[in-house]
Design a protein around this nucleic acid. Structure first.
Lengths: 199, 199
DNA sequence: TGTACATCAGTGAACGCGCGTTCACTGATGTAC
DNA sequence: TGTACATCAGTGAACGCGCGTTCACTGATGTAC
Protein backbone atom coordinates (compact mmCIF):
# COMPACT_ATOMS: atom_id res chain seq x y z
CA UNK A 1 0.00 0.00 0.00
CA UNK A 2 2.97 2.32 0.42
CA UNK A 3 4.27 1.52 -3.01
CA UNK A 4 5.33 4.32 -5.24
CA UNK A 5 2.76 3.24 -7.73
CA UNK A 6 -0.24 3.05 -5.57
CA UNK A 7 -2.43 1.19 -8.04
CA UNK A 8 -5.52 2.09 -6.16
CA UNK A 9 -5.26 5.77 -5.52
CA UNK A 10 -8.29 6.99 -7.41
CA UNK A 11 -10.65 4.80 -5.41
CA UNK A 12 -8.90 5.65 -2.17
CA UNK A 13 -9.14 9.36 -2.91
CA UNK A 14 -12.86 9.15 -3.47
CA UNK A 15 -13.38 7.19 -0.30
CA UNK A 16 -11.30 9.52 1.83
CA UNK A 17 -12.88 12.54 0.16
CA UNK A 18 -16.28 11.32 1.31
CA UNK A 19 -15.12 11.11 4.87
CA UNK A 20 -13.50 14.49 4.61
CA UNK A 21 -16.53 16.20 3.17
CA UNK A 22 -18.50 14.59 5.94
CA UNK A 23 -16.15 16.02 8.53
CA UNK A 24 -15.46 19.49 7.16
CA UNK A 25 -18.49 20.15 5.04
CA UNK A 26 -18.26 20.88 1.38
CA UNK A 27 -16.93 24.41 1.88
CA UNK A 28 -14.18 23.21 4.19
CA UNK A 29 -13.05 20.47 1.87
CA UNK A 30 -9.61 20.98 0.29
CA UNK A 31 -7.49 19.01 -2.11
CA UNK A 32 -4.40 19.38 0.01
CA UNK A 33 -6.02 17.98 3.13
CA UNK A 34 -7.40 15.15 1.05
CA UNK A 35 -3.92 14.31 -0.20
CA UNK A 36 -2.57 14.46 3.33
CA UNK A 37 -5.17 12.02 4.60
CA UNK A 38 -4.64 9.72 1.68
CA UNK A 39 -0.97 9.67 2.59
CA UNK A 40 0.15 11.03 -0.71
CA UNK A 41 1.74 14.21 -2.01
CA UNK A 42 -0.60 17.13 -2.58
CA UNK A 43 -0.01 16.75 -6.27
CA UNK A 44 -0.86 13.13 -6.72
CA UNK A 45 -4.62 13.70 -7.07
CA UNK A 46 -3.95 15.61 -10.27
CA UNK A 47 -3.02 12.33 -11.93
CA UNK A 48 -6.62 11.21 -11.48
CA UNK A 49 -8.72 14.37 -11.53
CA UNK A 50 -7.97 17.36 -13.65
CA UNK A 51 -9.09 19.83 -11.01
CA UNK A 52 -10.77 20.12 -7.67
CA UNK A 53 -14.11 20.72 -9.32
CA UNK A 54 -13.67 17.59 -11.34
CA UNK A 55 -13.16 15.57 -8.20
CA UNK A 56 -16.17 17.12 -6.51
CA UNK A 57 -18.28 16.22 -9.53
CA UNK A 58 -17.14 12.63 -9.33
CA UNK A 59 -18.06 12.66 -5.66
CA UNK A 60 -21.52 14.01 -6.40
CA UNK A 61 -22.16 11.43 -9.10
CA UNK A 62 -21.08 8.70 -6.71
CA UNK A 63 -23.41 10.07 -4.06
CA UNK A 64 -26.35 9.92 -6.46
CA UNK A 65 -25.54 6.32 -7.22
CA UNK A 66 -25.51 5.57 -3.53
CA UNK A 67 -28.88 7.22 -3.13
CA UNK A 68 -30.30 5.22 -5.98
CA UNK A 69 -28.95 2.01 -4.53
CA UNK A 70 -30.46 2.83 -1.15
CA UNK A 71 -33.82 3.62 -2.69
CA UNK A 72 -33.85 0.40 -4.70
CA UNK A 73 -32.98 -1.64 -1.68
CA UNK A 74 -35.70 0.00 0.37
CA UNK A 75 -38.29 -0.48 -2.34
CA UNK A 76 -37.33 -4.04 -3.17
CA UNK A 77 -39.33 -5.95 -0.61
CA UNK A 78 -42.50 -3.88 -0.60
CA UNK A 79 -45.40 -5.06 -2.72
CA UNK A 80 -47.97 -2.30 -2.21
CA UNK A 81 -46.90 0.70 -4.29
CA UNK A 82 -48.09 3.25 -1.75
CA UNK A 83 -46.14 1.55 0.98
CA UNK A 84 -43.21 1.39 -1.39
CA UNK A 85 -43.43 5.10 -1.98
CA UNK A 86 -43.43 5.68 1.75
CA UNK A 87 -40.44 3.45 2.23
CA UNK A 88 -38.50 5.22 -0.49
CA UNK A 89 -39.39 8.60 0.95
CA UNK A 90 -38.18 7.63 4.40
CA UNK A 91 -35.00 6.29 2.85
CA UNK A 92 -34.42 9.58 1.10
CA UNK A 93 -34.71 11.34 4.43
CA UNK A 94 -32.46 8.93 6.28
CA UNK A 95 -29.89 8.96 3.53
CA UNK A 96 -29.62 12.70 3.83
CA UNK A 97 -29.67 12.95 7.61
CA UNK A 98 -27.11 10.24 7.97
CA UNK A 99 -24.56 12.24 6.03
CA UNK A 100 -25.75 15.76 5.33
CA UNK A 101 -22.53 16.71 3.59
CA UNK A 102 -23.09 14.04 1.00
CA UNK A 103 -26.52 15.49 0.44
CA UNK A 104 -25.03 18.97 0.11
CA UNK A 105 -22.60 17.59 -2.39
CA UNK A 106 -25.54 16.49 -4.49
CA UNK A 107 -27.73 19.54 -4.16
CA UNK A 108 -25.62 22.46 -3.01
CA UNK A 109 -22.26 22.13 -4.64
CA UNK A 110 -21.56 25.03 -6.95
CA UNK A 111 -21.28 22.71 -9.96
CA UNK A 112 -23.12 23.30 -13.18
CA UNK A 113 -24.71 19.97 -13.93
CA UNK A 114 -24.68 20.51 -17.64
CA UNK A 115 -20.89 20.33 -17.45
CA UNK A 116 -21.12 17.00 -15.72
CA UNK A 117 -23.62 14.78 -17.51
CA UNK A 118 -22.72 11.91 -15.21
CA UNK A 119 -24.32 13.78 -12.34
CA UNK A 120 -27.47 14.43 -14.30
CA UNK A 121 -27.64 10.80 -15.37
CA UNK A 122 -27.14 9.57 -11.83
CA UNK A 123 -29.91 11.90 -10.66
CA UNK A 124 -32.19 10.54 -13.35
CA UNK A 125 -31.82 7.00 -12.01
CA UNK A 126 -33.56 7.95 -8.79
CA UNK A 127 -36.12 10.07 -10.55
CA UNK A 128 -37.08 7.15 -12.78
CA UNK A 129 -37.54 4.94 -9.77
CA UNK A 130 -39.87 7.49 -8.23
CA UNK A 131 -41.78 7.96 -11.48
CA UNK A 132 -42.29 4.24 -11.84
CA UNK A 133 -43.61 3.96 -8.31
CA UNK A 134 -45.95 6.89 -8.83
CA UNK A 135 -47.26 5.26 -11.98
CA UNK A 136 -48.21 2.20 -10.00
CA UNK A 137 -49.76 4.28 -7.25
CA UNK A 138 -51.95 6.13 -9.69
CA UNK A 139 -52.64 3.22 -11.99
CA UNK A 140 -50.92 4.89 -14.93
CA UNK A 141 -51.57 8.28 -16.42
CA UNK A 142 -49.48 11.38 -16.21
CA UNK A 143 -46.86 11.11 -13.55
CA UNK A 144 -44.76 14.13 -14.42
CA UNK A 145 -46.41 16.73 -12.21
CA UNK A 146 -47.45 14.43 -9.42
CA UNK A 147 -43.96 12.97 -9.25
CA UNK A 148 -42.42 16.42 -9.10
CA UNK A 149 -44.74 17.42 -6.29
CA UNK A 150 -43.95 14.33 -4.28
CA UNK A 151 -40.22 14.63 -4.83
CA UNK A 152 -40.32 18.30 -3.88
CA UNK A 153 -42.17 17.60 -0.67
CA UNK A 154 -39.80 14.89 0.46
CA UNK A 155 -36.89 17.03 -0.58
CA UNK A 156 -38.25 20.03 1.28
CA UNK A 157 -38.76 18.12 4.51
CA UNK A 158 -35.25 16.78 4.15
CA UNK A 159 -33.69 20.18 3.52
CA UNK A 160 -35.49 21.83 6.39
CA UNK A 161 -34.80 18.86 8.61
CA UNK A 162 -31.08 18.97 7.94
CA UNK A 163 -31.07 22.67 8.67
CA UNK A 164 -32.96 21.92 11.90
CA UNK A 165 -35.72 24.26 10.97
CA UNK A 166 -38.26 21.48 11.26
CA UNK A 167 -38.89 19.48 14.40
CA UNK A 168 -35.40 20.29 15.65
CA UNK A 169 -34.00 17.94 13.06
CA UNK A 170 -35.05 14.84 15.02
CA UNK A 171 -35.01 11.81 12.76
CA UNK A 172 -37.99 9.98 14.15
CA UNK A 173 -40.22 13.03 14.09
CA UNK A 174 -39.16 13.94 10.60
CA UNK A 175 -39.83 10.39 9.45
CA UNK A 176 -43.37 10.55 10.74
CA UNK A 177 -43.76 13.90 9.03
CA UNK A 178 -42.67 12.24 5.80
CA UNK A 179 -45.29 9.55 6.32
CA UNK A 180 -47.97 12.13 6.93
CA UNK A 181 -46.91 14.10 3.88
CA UNK A 182 -46.99 11.11 1.57
CA UNK A 183 -50.44 10.18 2.83
CA UNK A 184 -51.78 13.67 2.26
CA UNK A 185 -50.25 13.82 -1.20
CA UNK A 186 -51.67 10.49 -2.28
CA UNK A 187 -55.09 11.46 -0.97
CA UNK A 188 -54.91 14.76 -2.80
CA UNK A 189 -53.79 13.15 -6.04
CA UNK A 190 -56.62 10.65 -5.81
CA UNK A 191 -59.06 13.55 -5.61
CA UNK A 192 -57.58 15.11 -8.77
CA UNK A 193 -57.82 11.80 -10.62
CA UNK A 194 -61.44 11.36 -9.61
CA UNK A 195 -62.32 14.86 -10.72
CA UNK A 196 -60.68 14.30 -14.08
CA UNK A 197 -62.52 11.00 -14.53
CA UNK A 198 -65.90 12.56 -13.83
CA UNK A 199 -65.27 15.47 -16.15
CA UNK B 1 -20.75 60.87 2.01
CA UNK B 2 -16.97 60.90 1.96
CA UNK B 3 -16.75 62.24 5.45
CA UNK B 4 -14.39 60.62 7.86
CA UNK B 5 -17.30 59.84 10.09
CA UNK B 6 -19.59 58.22 7.67
CA UNK B 7 -22.66 58.32 9.87
CA UNK B 8 -24.41 55.79 7.77
CA UNK B 9 -21.92 53.04 7.28
CA UNK B 10 -23.74 50.18 8.93
CA UNK B 11 -26.75 50.52 6.68
CA UNK B 12 -24.57 51.00 3.61
CA UNK B 13 -22.57 47.89 4.46
CA UNK B 14 -25.69 45.79 4.69
CA UNK B 15 -27.01 47.12 1.42
CA UNK B 16 -23.77 46.59 -0.46
CA UNK B 17 -23.34 43.20 1.15
CA UNK B 18 -26.67 42.13 -0.31
CA UNK B 19 -25.56 43.09 -3.77
CA UNK B 20 -22.25 41.40 -3.27
CA UNK B 21 -23.74 38.16 -2.04
CA UNK B 22 -26.04 38.32 -5.04
CA UNK B 23 -23.09 38.68 -7.35
CA UNK B 24 -20.55 36.31 -5.83
CA UNK B 25 -22.74 33.89 -3.96
CA UNK B 26 -22.42 33.33 -0.27
CA UNK B 27 -19.20 31.37 -0.57
CA UNK B 28 -17.53 34.05 -2.68
CA UNK B 29 -18.51 36.85 -0.33
CA UNK B 30 -15.61 38.46 1.56
CA UNK B 31 -15.36 41.25 4.08
CA UNK B 32 -12.52 42.91 2.23
CA UNK B 33 -14.36 43.12 -1.06
CA UNK B 34 -17.35 44.46 0.82
CA UNK B 35 -15.23 47.21 2.34
CA UNK B 36 -13.76 48.01 -1.05
CA UNK B 37 -17.18 48.41 -2.62
CA UNK B 38 -18.41 50.47 0.27
CA UNK B 39 -15.46 52.77 -0.32
CA UNK B 40 -14.04 52.26 3.10
CA UNK B 41 -10.97 50.68 4.62
CA UNK B 42 -11.10 46.92 5.07
CA UNK B 43 -11.17 47.49 8.78
CA UNK B 44 -14.09 49.83 9.07
CA UNK B 45 -16.74 47.07 9.10
CA UNK B 46 -15.34 45.88 12.41
CA UNK B 47 -16.73 49.01 14.02
CA UNK B 48 -20.21 47.70 13.25
CA UNK B 49 -19.95 43.92 13.22
CA UNK B 50 -17.73 41.95 15.48
CA UNK B 51 -16.89 39.36 12.83
CA UNK B 52 -17.76 38.22 9.36
CA UNK B 53 -20.17 35.67 10.75
CA UNK B 54 -21.90 38.38 12.70
CA UNK B 55 -22.45 40.39 9.54
CA UNK B 56 -23.75 37.37 7.67
CA UNK B 57 -26.21 36.71 10.46
CA UNK B 58 -27.47 40.27 10.24
CA UNK B 59 -27.87 39.78 6.51
CA UNK B 60 -29.84 36.59 7.01
CA UNK B 61 -32.14 38.18 9.55
CA UNK B 62 -32.76 41.06 7.19
CA UNK B 63 -33.53 38.62 4.39
CA UNK B 64 -36.13 36.90 6.53
CA UNK B 65 -37.76 40.22 7.25
CA UNK B 66 -37.88 40.94 3.55
CA UNK B 67 -39.50 37.57 2.93
CA UNK B 68 -42.08 38.23 5.58
CA UNK B 69 -42.84 41.64 4.16
CA UNK B 70 -43.24 40.17 0.69
CA UNK B 71 -45.55 37.45 1.97
CA UNK B 72 -47.70 39.92 3.87
CA UNK B 73 -47.98 42.16 0.87
CA UNK B 74 -48.98 39.25 -1.36
CA UNK B 75 -51.53 37.98 1.10
CA UNK B 76 -53.02 41.38 1.92
CA UNK B 77 -55.54 41.74 -0.87
CA UNK B 78 -56.77 38.17 -1.07
CA UNK B 79 -59.96 37.28 0.77
CA UNK B 80 -60.27 33.56 0.11
CA UNK B 81 -57.77 31.77 2.36
CA UNK B 82 -56.94 29.09 -0.19
CA UNK B 83 -56.21 31.70 -2.80
CA UNK B 84 -54.20 33.55 -0.19
CA UNK B 85 -52.16 30.45 0.49
CA UNK B 86 -51.49 30.10 -3.22
CA UNK B 87 -50.46 33.71 -3.51
CA UNK B 88 -48.07 33.39 -0.57
CA UNK B 89 -46.60 30.22 -2.00
CA UNK B 90 -45.93 31.82 -5.35
CA UNK B 91 -44.39 34.78 -3.59
CA UNK B 92 -42.06 32.48 -1.68
CA UNK B 93 -40.95 31.00 -4.98
CA UNK B 94 -40.48 34.33 -6.70
CA UNK B 95 -38.67 35.79 -3.74
CA UNK B 96 -36.15 32.99 -3.91
CA UNK B 97 -35.72 32.87 -7.67
CA UNK B 98 -35.31 36.58 -7.92
CA UNK B 99 -32.25 36.49 -5.71
CA UNK B 100 -31.11 32.97 -4.99
CA UNK B 101 -28.14 34.11 -2.96
CA UNK B 102 -30.42 35.83 -0.52
CA UNK B 103 -32.30 32.57 -0.20
CA UNK B 104 -29.04 30.72 0.36
CA UNK B 105 -28.17 33.22 3.03
CA UNK B 106 -31.34 32.24 4.84
CA UNK B 107 -31.18 28.51 4.41
CA UNK B 108 -27.66 27.50 3.52
CA UNK B 109 -25.33 29.75 5.42
CA UNK B 110 -23.22 27.81 7.88
CA UNK B 111 -24.68 29.72 10.84
CA UNK B 112 -26.05 28.05 13.89
CA UNK B 113 -29.38 29.73 14.39
CA UNK B 114 -29.35 29.19 18.11
CA UNK B 115 -26.45 31.64 18.26
CA UNK B 116 -28.50 34.20 16.41
CA UNK B 117 -31.97 34.37 17.90
CA UNK B 118 -32.83 37.27 15.62
CA UNK B 119 -32.71 34.90 12.67
CA UNK B 120 -34.94 32.41 14.37
CA UNK B 121 -37.39 35.16 15.31
CA UNK B 122 -37.44 36.54 11.80
CA UNK B 123 -38.11 33.05 10.47
CA UNK B 124 -40.96 32.65 12.91
CA UNK B 125 -42.70 35.72 11.50
CA UNK B 126 -43.23 33.99 8.18
CA UNK B 127 -44.12 30.71 9.79
CA UNK B 128 -46.83 32.39 11.84
CA UNK B 129 -48.27 33.94 8.73
CA UNK B 130 -48.45 30.53 7.08
CA UNK B 131 -49.93 28.91 10.15
CA UNK B 132 -52.64 31.54 10.39
CA UNK B 133 -53.55 31.06 6.74
CA UNK B 134 -53.66 27.30 7.15
CA UNK B 135 -55.95 27.71 10.12
CA UNK B 136 -58.38 29.62 7.98
CA UNK B 137 -58.12 27.10 5.17
CA UNK B 138 -58.94 24.22 7.47
CA UNK B 139 -61.43 26.06 9.60
CA UNK B 140 -59.32 25.69 12.74
CA UNK B 141 -57.89 22.55 14.25
CA UNK B 142 -54.33 21.39 14.32
CA UNK B 143 -52.20 23.26 11.91
CA UNK B 144 -48.78 22.12 13.02
CA UNK B 145 -48.31 19.13 10.78
CA UNK B 146 -50.29 20.40 7.83
CA UNK B 147 -48.41 23.69 7.92
CA UNK B 148 -45.09 21.89 7.99
CA UNK B 149 -46.07 19.76 5.04
CA UNK B 150 -47.16 22.75 3.01
CA UNK B 151 -44.08 24.77 3.88
CA UNK B 152 -41.85 21.83 3.03
CA UNK B 153 -43.46 21.35 -0.34
CA UNK B 154 -43.13 24.97 -1.35
CA UNK B 155 -39.63 25.02 -0.01
CA UNK B 156 -38.71 21.86 -1.89
CA UNK B 157 -40.01 23.16 -5.20
CA UNK B 158 -38.09 26.35 -4.59
CA UNK B 159 -34.85 24.58 -3.73
CA UNK B 160 -35.01 22.27 -6.70
CA UNK B 161 -36.10 25.11 -8.93
CA UNK B 162 -33.15 27.26 -7.94
CA UNK B 163 -30.82 24.36 -8.57
CA UNK B 164 -32.49 23.91 -11.97
CA UNK B 165 -33.33 20.34 -11.18
CA UNK B 166 -37.00 21.00 -11.77
CA UNK B 167 -38.45 22.30 -15.03
CA UNK B 168 -35.11 23.81 -15.96
CA UNK B 169 -35.65 26.45 -13.35
CA UNK B 170 -38.19 28.32 -15.47
CA UNK B 171 -40.19 30.67 -13.28
CA UNK B 172 -43.54 30.36 -14.98
CA UNK B 173 -43.44 26.59 -15.03
CA UNK B 174 -42.36 26.42 -11.43
CA UNK B 175 -45.15 28.78 -10.44
CA UNK B 176 -47.71 26.54 -12.01
CA UNK B 177 -46.14 23.59 -10.25
CA UNK B 178 -46.56 25.48 -6.99
CA UNK B 179 -50.22 26.03 -7.81
CA UNK B 180 -50.72 22.37 -8.57
CA UNK B 181 -48.94 21.37 -5.38
CA UNK B 182 -51.02 23.62 -3.18
CA UNK B 183 -54.20 22.31 -4.76
CA UNK B 184 -53.19 18.70 -4.18
CA UNK B 185 -52.18 19.39 -0.61
CA UNK B 186 -55.41 21.16 0.25
CA UNK B 187 -57.42 18.33 -1.32
CA UNK B 188 -55.44 15.79 0.61
CA UNK B 189 -55.78 17.64 3.87
CA UNK B 190 -59.53 17.91 3.33
CA UNK B 191 -59.67 14.14 3.02
CA UNK B 192 -57.84 13.69 6.33
CA UNK B 193 -60.17 16.13 8.06
CA UNK B 194 -63.24 14.33 6.72
CA UNK B 195 -61.90 10.98 7.88
CA UNK B 196 -61.25 12.32 11.34
CA UNK B 197 -64.73 13.80 11.51
CA UNK B 198 -66.42 10.52 10.58
CA UNK B 199 -64.35 8.49 13.01
C1' DT C 1 15.31 -14.47 -21.25
C1' DG C 2 17.30 -9.86 -21.63
C1' DT C 3 17.19 -5.31 -22.75
C1' DA C 4 15.92 -0.67 -24.51
C1' DC C 5 12.58 2.51 -24.16
C1' DA C 6 7.97 4.70 -23.71
C1' DT C 7 4.66 5.64 -20.51
C1' DC C 8 2.56 5.97 -16.19
C1' DA C 9 2.10 7.76 -11.48
C1' DG C 10 4.23 9.54 -8.12
C1' DT C 11 7.46 13.68 -5.65
C1' DG C 12 8.89 18.40 -3.77
C1' DA C 13 9.63 23.20 -4.52
C1' DA C 14 7.62 27.26 -5.86
C1' DC C 15 4.11 30.85 -7.28
C1' DG C 16 0.68 34.01 -6.56
C1' DC C 17 -3.24 34.91 -4.19
C1' DG C 18 -6.55 37.00 -0.97
C1' DC C 19 -8.44 36.19 3.13
C1' DG C 20 -9.94 37.41 8.38
C1' DT C 21 -8.21 39.58 12.02
C1' DT C 22 -5.23 42.42 15.24
C1' DC C 23 -2.64 46.42 16.34
C1' DA C 24 -1.46 51.08 17.12
C1' DC C 25 -2.87 55.15 15.24
C1' DT C 26 -5.66 59.57 14.16
C1' DG C 27 -9.25 62.58 12.84
C1' DA C 28 -14.04 63.98 14.07
C1' DT C 29 -17.68 64.56 17.29
C1' DG C 30 -20.19 65.41 21.62
C1' DT C 31 -20.34 66.99 26.31
C1' DA C 32 -19.40 68.96 31.07
C1' DC C 33 -18.10 72.93 33.13
C1' DT D 1 -19.37 81.07 24.45
C1' DG D 2 -15.04 78.65 25.01
C1' DT D 3 -12.39 74.93 26.12
C1' DA D 4 -10.65 70.43 27.85
C1' DC D 5 -11.33 65.93 27.29
C1' DA D 6 -13.61 61.39 26.52
C1' DT D 7 -15.41 58.71 23.06
C1' DC D 8 -16.52 57.33 18.59
C1' DA D 9 -15.41 55.78 13.91
C1' DG D 10 -12.36 55.73 10.81
C1' DT D 11 -7.10 54.43 8.73
C1' DG D 12 -2.94 51.63 7.13
C1' DA D 13 0.49 48.25 8.10
C1' DA D 14 1.25 43.75 9.34
C1' DC D 15 0.52 38.72 10.56
C1' DG D 16 -0.23 34.16 9.64
C1' DC D 17 -2.54 31.16 6.95
C1' DG D 18 -3.58 27.58 3.53
C1' DC D 19 -5.17 27.22 -0.74
C1' DG D 20 -5.15 25.48 -6.06
C1' DT D 21 -2.16 24.92 -9.47
C1' DT D 22 2.20 24.57 -12.33
C1' DC D 23 6.78 22.99 -13.08
C1' DA D 24 10.61 20.02 -13.60
C1' DC D 25 11.77 15.89 -11.74
C1' DT D 26 12.16 10.65 -10.74
C1' DG D 27 11.00 6.03 -9.67
C1' DA D 28 8.15 2.03 -11.27
C1' DT D 29 5.91 -0.55 -14.78
C1' DG D 30 4.81 -2.66 -19.25
C1' DT D 31 6.04 -3.89 -23.87
C1' DA D 32 8.41 -4.83 -28.42
C1' DC D 33 12.05 -7.16 -30.22
Amino acid sequence: MDRYHHGNLKAVLLKVAFQLVGKLGIEGFTLRELARRAGVSHNAPYRHFKSKEDLVAALAAEAFHQLHAALEKAAAGVADPKERLCAAARTYLHFALQNPSRFNLMFHSPLQWKNYPKCAAAYAESWNLLAETMRECQGGGDVETSGEVVWSTIHGITELGIARHLREGKVAELASLVDAAVRVLLDGLAVSTRQQASR
